[in-house]
Simulated assay, not measured.
Amino acid sequence: MKILIINGNYRSGTTWLQKILDNNKKIIICSQPFFELFKLFENYIIKTHKIAGIIDFPSGILSFKKLPTTLLYDKFIKKKHLIDIINQIITSKDKERFNHTNLKFYKFFKKKILKKNNFLSFSEVLNYIVETIIIYRGEDLNKISYVGFKEGYLTSLLPLLLKVKNCKIINMIRDPREIAYSRNYSKNSDLKDFDIRTKHPTIMIGLLCKNNMQMSEKLKKNKKFLLVNFNKLILKKKIEIKKISKFLNIEIKIKKTLINKENNKIWSANTGGNKKNGNYGVNWKTNMKNYEIAVIEKICDKYMLKNNYKKIYKDKNELNKIVSNFSENTNYLKKWSKKKYFINYDNKFINKFKI
């Protein structure tokens, strides 16, 4: 049995791919079972690197130059703290979470952790997550080739995760302007993952997308890593699915009806869209503000070109002029994202994320 992880920024098709794979008899892959573990791990790395001022920073933005494999085995996680987090999830009023990963997972996971030592490593907890997924899904392990999950914002940790034994990673990218538009301009009232009345800072979205594309470029030759382009998966399904099948050595087919295995209900694809337009992000060019487009193109720059995302602002002087006058409207931002470095464009701040 191998571990499979799907990574990618929000609105980049990770949930769709997770449902496609989870509806295959040889794969069990749930959705965002325990993001808190990866946040703990990233904060631990930040602390060990003695990086000032960015604890509780949005995950997935930092780009660490060198991460020793030993970090996987440091016993920095307190069992008591882990149990507290699990209890908070179990008693949470946010029932939408259990449509991603069933409540049974957390109850089984808690029982498993209670039997363990007082201090645990990231590697140990990751294996316990995988073991728990098998238990609560009740599948025959002899018939399963891959067990895993999809998570957003793991980009900073991908080099380390690839060092985990028998672990493969599928990383999804999408045009950053489509992601920004799909996240901040969606009018789909059925969305449960986020409040469509609020927005995420344009600079933050740009940094997340840049790091994801940059990391993909860095890891693309690793045999345990596969890059999947959302736009190609939409337009050239057969070719991309064939590529995924070869990577996993399993025949993958997209079923007409996809089931959410957490609640056994039919899953509706492309929640970032609306009933008339399944791929909501394609409208970015005519609907996004020019300064939002400019900021994203400035941040993502060469990585957009590497992935054939054509830039609107080809004149650097025009681009720099727009960006220098950029100031985010904070009225609609989520409270946690109202950080000063996401409000105005600052080159020194942008270049800080190469640690």
Rank of each mutant, 00 (worst) to 15 (best):
S182L: 08
N229T: 10
N231W: 01
T69S: 01
K243L: 10
L17P: 12
K223M: 02
R137D: 02
I133W: 07
D175W: 04
L62V: 14
S92L: 12
K246G: 11
N290T: 08
R174H: 08
N279A: 07
D315C: 07
K115P: 15
K104V: 14
T155D: 15
F349S: 12
N347W: 06
K354T: 14
K256H: 15
S59K: 14
I296C: 00
K256Y: 14
K242S: 15
H49R: 13
D315W: 10
N184V: 00
K232A: 07
S268D: 02
M1K: 13
E328K: 02
H200G: 07
L21F: 04
S327I: 12
N166C: 05
F105V: 00
A269E: 12
L248D: 09
T101K: 09
K187C: 05
N166T: 12
S268I: 15
L162W: 03
T15Y: 10
N229E: 04
L103A: 00
I135F: 15
N290A: 01
R137T: 15
W16R: 02
N229M: 01
C300W: 06
K104G: 09
L157Y: 09
N274Y: 01
H200Q: 09
Q88H: 09
L305P: 08
I252R: 10
I45F: 00
L160H: 09
N9F: 07
I113S: 10
K340D: 13
K192P: 13
K80R: 03
F122Y: 08
N274R: 11
E240Y: 11
I20T: 10
A180H: 06
D84R: 04
L226H: 01
N166H: 15
Y136G: 05
R197D: 12
L160E: 01
F35Q: 03
I46W: 05
I3N: 05
T155Y: 15
A269T: 11
D190P: 08
I266P: 06
T202I: 15
L120H: 11
K80N: 00
L157C: 08
K348F: 09
K302Q: 14
D84C: 02
T202R: 11
D22L: 09
W267K: 07
D74M: 10
D74P: 00
G278D: 04
K302A: 12
N270V: 04
I179H: 00
Y332K: 00
F149S: 04
T14G: 02
S59Q: 13
L258I: 11
K80C: 00
I27Y: 11
L161Q: 02
G273Q: 00
K253I: 15
P33Q: 07
K310V: 15
W336C: 02
K276A: 08
K25E: 13
N43M: 11
G60T: 07
E131S: 14
A294G: 09
V125G: 11
K236E: 13
L141N: 02
K237A: 03
D56E: 13
E124Q: 06
F149P: 00
S156D: 12
N118Y: 01
Y153L: 14
Y10V: 00
S324Q: 14
L114G: 12
N347K: 10
N188S: 05
